[in-house]
């Protein structure tokens, strides 16, 4: 075997590290969690909201519902704000301003999630408690914080999608007498739609998977939420709150919660990949 061939082999093995890690992660999460799902039955696991792990009740319905609601709430804030930011920067701001603002907004991504959670507890939770009632630690607080946290994802991927639309499209539309805004709304946005949808899906993935900030602001109550002011516990919070002391079946149940989360995230990621590829 020549030196070149040898190097190529070695590099190939290094290159398998990412897919290999993914396979290992999948394997171990299922290895630890699947026995419990089989033991409890999938239906009792995902369709019951009775979670009393020390007494043998492992129903995570309330957490699934909470995760979905918190994520949807995050989208309500994050998508319009994020899209507005992306459109402003890509279409309506001078090149120089864009070059400063884009990296600045992307800096939001670097702020650790515990810092978002902390500021949520200090500022947002008291505001909700005083002006809207309830304990403050709530579905609403979780949604608002997550909505802010997904902004960098939504903004930066949408900007890339908008920038990828050929300049000719814009020129054609302007030449026909359309205003910049009409061009954006009728020509650029439809052309960039698959990229923007990808941005939104990846934002959702971030929101579903976020843990620390949600634990800090969402209240972690084990009930199906009855209002936006009710405290909720998401799938991620459930794992993080109990993993430290869980053992036996209880620990398995947390890995089983992880399986559900993992499957949701993979579906979101796969659809994002498929949409991007079709473009």
């Amino acid at each position: 075997m020549g030196r070149g061939k040898f190097v190529e082999r070695v590099l190939f093995f290094l290159a398998l590290s990412s897919i290999g890690s993914l396979a290992l992660i999948t394997f171990f999460i299922f290895l630890e969690g699947l026995p419990l799902i089989l033991h409890t039955g999938l239906k009792d696991f995902v369709a019951s909201s009775h979670w009393a792990p020390t007494k043998g009740h492992f129903g995570i319905l309330a957490m699934i519902v909470s995760s979905i609601l918190v994520t949807l709430g995050a989208m309500v804030l994050g998508v319009p704000l994020g899209l507005a930011g992306a459109i402003t920067l890509a279409e309506f701001s001078p090149e120089r301003l864009k070059r400063i603002l884009k990296p600045t907004l992307e800096l939001l991504a670097g702020i650790p999630s515990v810092v978002y959670g902390f500021l949520g507890v200090i500022w947002l939770v008291p505001l909700i408690r005083i002006y809207l009632g309830g304990p403050g630690l709530s579905l609403l607080a979780g949604s608002l914080i997550l909505g802010i946290m997904i902004l960098p994802t939504v903004i930066s991927i949408s900007i890339d999608a908008l920038t990828a639309v050929p300049q000719l499209y814009r020129e054609g539309s302007i030449a026909l007498g359309a205003t910049r805004w009409q061009t954006v709304r009728r020509v650029v946005l439809p052309a960039a739609s698959s990229g923007i949808i990808t941005a939104i899906i990846l934002g959702m993935g971030r929101a579903v998977g976020e843990t620390m900030a949600v634990i800090m602001v969402a209240g972690n109550a084990l009930k199906l939420p009855t209002s936006v002011l009710a405290p909720v516990r998401t799938l991620t919070s459930n794992i993080a709150l109990e993993l430290g002391y869980a053992a036996g079946r209880h620990r398995e149940a947390l890995f089983a919660t992880g399986i559900v989360l993992f499957v949701i995230i993979m579906i979101l990621n796969l659809s994002a990949t498929l949409i991007t590829r079709r473009r």
Partner: peptide
């Protein structure tokens, strides 16, 4: 790509 999307709590479990 998928690895980039795996949430940190799942990595923690793993």
């Amino acid at each position: 790509e998928c690895l980039a999307g795996v949430p940190s709590i799942i990595l923690g479990l793993f």
